[in-house]
């Protein structure tokens, strides 16, 4: 405010020197590349972890069995981990901006529970339903559950930081109880746990390809990154900038719900991921989604790869479901993060 004269930038002069590059931008690109390399390395490790031996020399020697195993089981599994990890983390990030609260993600506000209820309903009503139908119904239920959460939030008198996640957890709890009740009645508790606890051990060629849908949804989220960032500033800011806040919220609702539904149907719920990854990325790089989405995607993929590898090796040759590893690891990291934030604010 010290400059005495206002300079309206003249349209004519296009001095390239003035169009300053963001300081530190090249460095960040380098980091992003290094991060990608790290995730690729984890993916490579993931390809060679398992009960049956698949080793590099075997592959090089043209061992047909090893190659089959690689293509039928290991590659699909690794791809599934990367796709689901990326998408769930990004869905968490989008949801946090939508409700302007850091402590929510699809599995803590009823989205995942609703999707599970949807699959259960199809399974009971049409036991022979094709997976696409199951996924579709799960998607519709997830949309409904998430919309309900948003509607409840809209009616809360004051937006209390703690109230938002509590409302989500309560809503998720109610929907989850209904689901468990019906699963119990129809003797489907065993099946239910397949969707509630994420597990990549069943992933084979032909059973994961639907996850490419979430890749498309995640990309859509990235393309709308600016919109979600602005929506995170609030309805007034969004309207002032000439954007339709409700339309952005609807887009977010669809992306988050469908990602959750597809992931739950194919590999089961992946808890905590959407909570911790966006929070870590936010602390490190901030919330401008243009920058945060790539990092969230990388961290998401890397974290699930790591957890899946741990799950496969910790009591080899048996497997621990990845959801379990993530709960333990994720909860620990998140707790540490919360304590750190408190220290920072104190």
């Amino acid at each position: 405010m010290s400059a005495p004269v206002l300079n309206r930038p003249a349209a004519a002069e296009q001095d390239p020197a003035v169009a300053v590059r963001r300081p530190g931008k090249p460095a960040e690109t380098t980091w992003l590349l290094l991060g990608t390399v790290a995730v690729l390395l984890l993916a490579a490790v993931s390809l060679f972890v398992g009960v049956s031996d698949v080793t590099l020399p075997q592959l090089l020697a043209g061992d047909a069995e090893a190659w089959d195993l690689l293509w039928i089981s290991r590659v699909p599994r690794t791809l599934a981990v990367v796709l689901a990890g990326t998408a769930v983390a990004v869905a968490g990030l989008i949801m946090q901006l939508m409700v302007r609260n850091r402590f929510v993600e699809p599995s803590t506000v009823g989205t995942v529970e609703s999707a599970t209820l949807g699959i259960l309903v199809v399974t009971v009503a049409l036991p022979a339903a094709p997976i696409m139908l199951k996924m579709g119904v799960a998607g519709v239920f997830a949309l409904g559950g998430t919309a309900l959460f948003l509607a409840v939030l809209g009616r809360l008198p004051a937006r209390n930081t703690l109230l938002v996640p509590i409302v989500g957890i309560m809503l998720g709890g109610v929907i989850g109880s209904v689901t468990t009740f019906f699963a119990y009645r129809y003797d489907l508790l065993q099946t239910l746990s397949n969707w509630m606890i994420g597990d990549f051990s069943g992933v084979l060629r032909g059973r994961y390809e639907l996850l490419w849908i979430v890749a498309a949804l995640t990309l859509a989220g990235y393309l709308a990154a600016d919109r979600f960032t602005v929506a995170g500033l609030g309805a007034d800011f969004t309207t002032n900038l000439g954007m339709n806040h409700k339309a952005i919220m609807r887009l977010g609702l669809v992306l988050v719900s469908l990602i959750s539904a597809v992931v739950v149907t194919t590999v089961g719920a992946v808890p905590f991921l959407g909570l911790i990854v966006p929070n870590i990325v936010s602390l490190l790089f901030g919330d401008n989604l243009r920058r945060a989405v790539p990092w969230t995607a990388l961290f998401g993929a890397g974290f699930v790869l790591l957890c899946d590898i741990i799950g496969r090796t910790i009591r080899f040759p048996y497997e621990v479901p990845v959801g379990m590893v993530m709960s333990v690891l994720g909860a620990t990291i998140f707790l540490a993060l919360l304590l750190r934030t408190r220290k920072r604010n104190a």
Binding site: R100, N101, D226, V230, F237, L241, G242, G286
Partner: peptide, 30 residues
């Protein structure tokens, strides 16, 4: 204005150009 996001000042101010740039800032926007 309760902004809970971690946004850099430069980025926030940059969003003011959104109606003009549509998210693709030119040297002029800068």
């Amino acid at each position: 204005n309760h902004i809970t996001m971690r946004l850099r000042v430069r980025d926030l101010v940059g969003f003011g150009r959104f109606p003009h740039s549509g998210g693709h800032p030119t040297a002029q926007d800068e």
